[in-house]
Simulated assay, not measured.
Amino acid sequence: MPVRIANVTFDCENTLATARFWSAAFGRPLDPDPTEFFASIGLTEKDRDGTPSVFFILVPEKKTVKNRTHLDLDSGGDRETEIARLVGLGAKRGADHDEFGHSWTVMNDPEGNEFCIS
Results as ranks from 00 to 15, higher is better:
Glu80Phe: 12
Phe38Ala: 00
Leu89Pro: 01
Asp78Glu: 10
Thr69His: 15
Asn108Leu: 13
Arg93Leu: 05
Asp78His: 08
Leu89Gln: 01
Asp74Gly: 03
Glu36Tyr: 00
Arg85Trp: 05
Pro60Cys: 04
Ala39Met: 06
His70Met: 08
Glu114Lys: 13
Leu86Ile: 04
Met107Phe: 04
Ser53Ile: 10
Thr69Gln: 08
Gly90Pro: 02
Met107Arg: 10
Glu82Lys: 11
Val59Asn: 04
Met107Ile: 10
Val87Arg: 07
Ser40Tyr: 04
Thr105His: 06
Asp47Ile: 15
Gly50Trp: 09
Pro34Tyr: 03
Ser40Leu: 07
Lys63Phe: 02
Leu73Ala: 04
Arg79Asn: 03
Pro60Trp: 11
Pro34His: 05
Ser118Gln: 11
Phe38Ser: 00
Phe56Thr: 00
Gly90Phe: 05
Ile41Ser: 09
Pro32His: 12
Gly50Ser: 06
Asp78Thr: 09
Leu43Ser: 15
Glu82Ser: 01
Thr81Glu: 07
Arg93Ala: 12
Glu114Gln: 08
Glu111Cys: 02
Ser103Pro: 01
Ser75Trp: 08
Val54Pro: 01
Glu114Asn: 08
Pro34Val: 06
Glu80Ile: 13
Lys92Ala: 02
Trp104Thr: 04
Asp49Val: 03
Arg85Asn: 03
Lys66Leu: 08
Glu36Pro: 00
Phe115Ile: 14
Ser40Ala: 15
Gly94Met: 12
Gly76Pro: 04
Glu111Ser: 04
Ala95Met: 09
His102Gly: 03
Lys66Phe: 06
Thr64Cys: 11
Asn67Ala: 07
Thr51Ser: 07
Ile117Met: 12
Gly76Phe: 05
Arg48Gly: 06
Leu30Trp: 01
Glu61Tyr: 05
Met107Leu: 15
Val106Thr: 13
Thr105Val: 14
Phe115Leu: 13
Lys92Asp: 01
Phe100Tyr: 15
Phe55Pro: 00
Asp31Asn: 05
Phe38Ile: 01
Phe115Val: 07
Pro52Ala: 02
Lys92Gly: 00
His97Ala: 13
Asp78Lys: 14
Cys116Val: 09
Met107Asn: 09
Lys66Trp: 09
Phe37Pro: 00
Pro34Thr: 09
Gly50Ile: 12
Thr51Gly: 03
Gly94Lys: 15
Leu58Thr: 00
Asp74Asn: 06
Pro110Asn: 13
Thr81Phe: 02
Gly88Ala: 07
Glu82His: 12
Phe37Thr: 02
Phe37His: 10
Arg93Gln: 11
Phe115Asp: 04
Val54His: 01
Ile117Arg: 11
Gly101Tyr: 11
Ser103Asp: 08
Leu43Asp: 09
His97Phe: 10
Ile41Cys: 05
Ser75Phe: 03
Asp47Glu: 15
Arg79Glu: 09
Asp74His: 11
Asp78Gln: 10
Ser40Thr: 14
Ile83Ala: 05
